[in-house]
Amino acid sequence: MTNISIRIWLVPLALLAIAIALPFVVPKYYVQFASKALLLGMLAMALNLVVGYGGLVSLCHGAFFGIGGYALAMVTPKYDPVSLWWSFPFAVALAGFAALIIGALALRTRGVYFIMVTLAFGEMLFFLFHDNQFAGGSDGAYINNKPEIAIAGRVLLDLDKPLAFYFVVLACLVATIALLTMLVRSPFGHALAAARDNERRARSLGFPIFRLRLIAFVISGAIAGVAGYFSAAQFGFIAPQTLGWHVSATVLVMVLIGGLRSVVGPLVGALVLLGLEEVLKASTEYWKLAEGLIVIAIVLFLPNGVRHLLTAALGERKDESPQDVKAVAKVEHA
């Protein structure tokens, strides 16, 4: 291992060590808060595969998130826990299936149409769960027992304990980061980005753009379902509002805060936004007003996310990331 590759691995490993040590030093409330934040970060990272790398602004990821949760709620019996081994794949597959159907229709459109169509289909799912009684209707559905991780009747991990739950979430998060990193560095990821930067050229080079985008959309929806499954398990409750587009838009804000051109940026964005919400909620009754103004300010003054704040504070970074180089190359080319 060369010097450089050690340096590249050092920061993530240090952060992972902090994440592992965290629940042993902070109070229980913050362990639960951290689980919630990591799950929303997972959702934001999933969304960014479509928004940042695919160039498609989707406003229905809240719906996939919610479907993951509803799937768990519907298969959990009233008095017993459900086995994670089959309920988890079921929830993820259901979210992925919804993404497949919505994606196949929405991807027939471009740009602003895509935004409106995803928004509308997301709301359709909201109404489906809100107006029908099969999953509790407008009252939402309760999950009385967290899913069980057991082999041959022996419980391996008790998700009722916040600590165990946190580590399961953390493991899922690391797996998500690994999967997304692999994806965006693979030929698939490069083709997806090529279609984002210049659709016509990518098409004339022979890339099956519709299929590439649909695959990205389905993967992204499925990961959103993973986050939704655990989020519903954590709170023991899922409401139709979870599917609504306010959730989707809030997650988009996280993506923007974290920056569009990195895999873990949206996770940072989620932590920043949730931390901000905690502070605002504690300090003012009108925290939504403040949050709205902050969102507007971020859009107007920090179009490239908080990373630019860091750059502005610490000075220009010497080693440009490959994406930046590509962006420069693109500008020169144009």
Partner: peptide
């Protein structure tokens, strides 16, 4: 881009 427009108007909704 559309993302900026979507998010700014979302901020306006909150306000």
């Amino acid at each position: 881009d559309h993302l900026a427009q979507v998010l700014l108007s979302f901020g306006l909704i909150l306000v």
